[in-house]
Design a protein around this nucleic acid. Structure first.
Lengths: 250, 250
DNA sequence: TGTGAATGTAAATAACATTTACATACGTAA
DNA sequence: TTACGTATGTAAATGTTATTTACATTCACA
């Protein structure tokens, strides 16, 4: 039963060569499977083929490994959001909605990172680098909100961009946490989390004075088609396409 | 060192008499302090003055205790929301906003319950009674949304009440999770979580076509004051009172 | 009063996190 | 090339936890 260990040792020698990375990967896999609480330091070591004490050469303790993963998660998150925002192309509102979708996509596609970042109970405010990473990620939303705020139609009250950013963050986070986690989404929904969030954001944007009825034709930015929202769209769904921000639940 | 245990035993006899409840209370305290992960079954037993095996007479395992707490939490949550909604008095919109406040208040005042309910990683969908309790709590929001949907001004698209309920839930949950947890709120904000959520909900409601400018005078329900939102309210805050859904950050 | 069901206890097992003392390999300066 | 300091692993030990099993005490009630 130890031939396997010996075998592995023979293959890689006394030194692993890349243990830190291997541990991170192992932990990532374990967290994705069994949640941030179900991950054990010993398991990760076993998975990497080293003794239970080896990880301590690379991480002060279990929490530091978790924290490293969260850190990396925030970095990837920031990259994803940046890409989704794409500097506001083709127009601010479209890009803004893409941001929300990206949030959900991350929660769904990177459950391990998401868990470590938001569900591990780690005190984000204790690690300066972690907090910084978190703030950089939020900064993308913040910047987008800044641009959006500048476009609030004249005559409408214009809330601080920071506030708009926090609103969007909380909507995305709320939908993601409640409905986009767990393999089969813990709670049943009459629609996808994506559609739910999209509708939510669109209603919010309308509340800020943005026209939100156009959809297929995405003209340039300051172009504002019919400023009057379409009326009388009951759940019956007359036409084939969604008549408002929400379609008929399929 | 065992005199204390003997002492306690003498006071209460071989049987604790109320162990189940004592364990729940102990766990509640521990979770409030150290988070849902930092609570140990053995600790709760110790705190109740019984042997480490005693709890197993009342809970199948650690998870079942946690689950019981979550269950009780959802029940209290439902009660709190019901009270806040107060059947839509004095008017639907006001009561609706109170609902959001109650959500935050619960997250803040009952961190242990909130943790067990939403941050413990428990598979809510696995316990039928837990899921039912969760759905009853959401039912309050759902019912409120139902009433609100009926008031969407004619001429505005009216989203399904269920969707509105989910929107409100996600906003509240997002704000609560991100900004109303942890003794000193992990992330710094330019305003209180309550104000943040209130503004968010008001903008959302405006997006649905509700007039959202009145504040001190709360007239009867179907009474709809100036349907035109106030214009030109830059962050400078001209008058003393909040000029829109948001005041100046103090 | 006797008895079965509840409720606790003690002791044992297995898994972890973490520490300490010791072993090995790697890079580098002489 | 070699000697040495440092980085990286290992083995063994400690203390804690979850959980189970066999046994003890007490309660409710016939």
């Amino acid at each position: 039963m130890s031939w396997r260990k010996e075998q592995r040792r023979a293959e890689r020698g006394y030194h692993h060569g890349n243990l830190k990375e291997a541990l991170l990967q192992a932990a990532l896999g374990l967290i994705a499977e069994k949640g941030p609480g179900g991950f054990t330091f010993a398991d990760a070591a076993r998975m990497a083929g080293v003794s239970p004490a080896a990880p301590y050469r690379h991480f002060r303790d279990r929490d530091e490994l978790l924290s490293s993963i969260a850190q990396r998660g925030f970095e990837q998150f920031e990259a994803l959001l940046t890409q989704a925002w794409d500097d506001g192309r083709p127009d601010t509102v479209t890009a803004f909605e893409r941001l929300g979708k990206a949030y959900l996509a991350f929660a769904r596609d990177e459950p391990a990172f998401y868990s470590a970042m938001f569900e591990s109970g780690l005190p984000v405010d204790l690690s300066p680098t972690l907090q910084a990473a978190s703030e950089r990620a939020f900064g993308v939303i913040r910047a987008a909100a800044e641009r959006l705020a500048a476009l609030v139609p004249p005559g409408m009250p214009r809330p601080p961009a920071m506030m708009m950013a926090l609103h969007i963050w909380s909507m995305s986070h709320g939908v993601a946490s409640l409905f986009a986690r767990g393999d089969s989404a813990r709670r049943k929904l009459p629609m996808s989390a994506e559609d739910l969030l999209e509708a939510e954001v669109l209603i919010y944007l309308r509340g800020l004075g943005f026209p939100t009825d156009r959809r297929p034709p995405a003209p340039k930015d300051p172009a504002a088609p019919p400023p009057v929202p379409p009326s009388g769209a009951s759940p019956g769904a007359p036409s084939g396409a969604p008549s408002g921000p929400w379609g008929t639940p399929k």
